[in-house]
């Protein structure tokens, strides 16, 4: 049971899945920062993104396209259709509720899970499918350590995209617009910021990064309409990170990824989903704003 090699391997696996959690969590944080809505449907959005990829790649494969062409066309096509999905959700479900308290909007996202899962089961059937993996399923050995090459590459891609997106949208002028909108929508509008544009952009970013996460996850987990359950682990990631902090999400994603894999190593796979929540519960007792969340500023 206690084998150091095995432990290290599991730790690495945990950190790798942490990278993908970070990418997923980024989407949730983006929407939360801009609109104060916690998007429970993000897992479902990821799942739909993965199905988009499945559809595009299968169509291309059926035409006998070579591998590079499959990736070259189906990846951008997936991103574009996910962006459209985000725009549709924002425009028709979120925009009409602008000016309301965020709570009804959060309820809408919960309802959206059922809609998206039901739709995907209708369109793509509930059977497990395996989209063409982006990276080969080989296993490399470093000494006696086995490293899953697919997970390694997925991790690298997830982290690079995470960093690029967060640098662009935190350090730039648009980052200021997103934060201003989050603080006070009507005042942001009075600064000349296009508030509905900010909403659209954050949903688009969330859906596109989410679809990438779905593409990376589905060869590992298999693609079914319930792929969205990863969303559950990501809820704990985002809460632990502090809801609106991008760095917080990155740190929390690694913590949760590692803890999950340790839990399945020592306690068995059935505890994998529970232990992260125990950790989250313990941490928010002492740090209610999460690890890096914004504290309310009160001037005395």
């Amino acid at each position: 049971m206690f084998d150091p090699i095995f432990l290290i391997e599991n730790s690495i696996t945990g950190l790798f899945s942490g990278g993908i959690y970070a990418l997923i969590g980024l989407g949730v944080v983006f929407i939360f920062r801009a609109t104060k809505v916690f998007n429970f449907a993000h897992g479902a959005v990821i799942m739909i993104g993965a199905y988009f990829y499945l559809t595009f790649s299968e169509i291309l494969i059926s035409f006998g396209s070579p591998n590079w062409l499959v990736f070259l066309i189906s990846l951008p096509a997936t991103f574009v259709s996910s962006a459209l999905l985000g725009m549709i959700i924002e425009k028709f479900l979120m925009r009409p509720m602008m000016g309301q308290h965020p709570f009804p909007l959060i309820m809408i996202t919960i309802g959206l899970i059922s809609v998206l899962e039901g739709l995907s089961a209708m369109i793509w059937t509930p059977a497990a499918q395996y989209p063409k993996p982006l990276f080969p399923l080989d296993i490399d050995f470093i000494g006696s350590l086995a490293i899953n090459r697919q997970m390694l590459f997925s991790f690298i891609v997830a982290i690079i995209i995470f960093l690029i997106i967060s640098i662009i949208f935190v350090r730039s002028k648009s980052g200021v617009a997103i934060r201003a909108t989050a603080t006070d929508q009507s005042t942001a509008a009075l600064m000349g910021i296009n508030v509905s544009g900010v909403f659209s952009i954050s949903w688009i970013i969330a859906c596109v990064t989410g679809s990438l996460a779905g593409i990376l996850l589905s060869p590992i987990n298999s693609l079914t309409p319930s792929l969205g359950i990863v969303g559950l682990s990501v809820i704990s990631v985002v809460i632990l990170g502090g809801l609106d902090s991008i760095i917080g999400v990155l740190i929390a994603a690694f913590i949760i990824g590692w803890v999950e894999s340790m839990a399945s190593h020592f306690l068995g796979g059935q505890y994998k989903e529970i232990v992260p929540y125990v950790i989250v519960l313990l941490i928010i007792i002492f740090k209610p704003h999460g690890l890096m969340g914004t504290h309310q500023i009160d001037r005395l």
């Binding site: 006070d184 009075l190 600064m191 500023i297």
Partner: peptide, 27 residues
């Protein structure tokens, strides 16, 4: 048209400079 709202309504978690950057969208 610019509007200074009652109670100032500055973006309290942004810095002073970032507040002005946000306002520069009016240009």
């Amino acid at each position: 048209m610019a509007y200074v709202r009652e109670g100032r309504k500055i973006f309290s978690d942004l810095t002073v400079n970032e507040n002005l950057v946000a306002a520069s969208y009016a240009l």
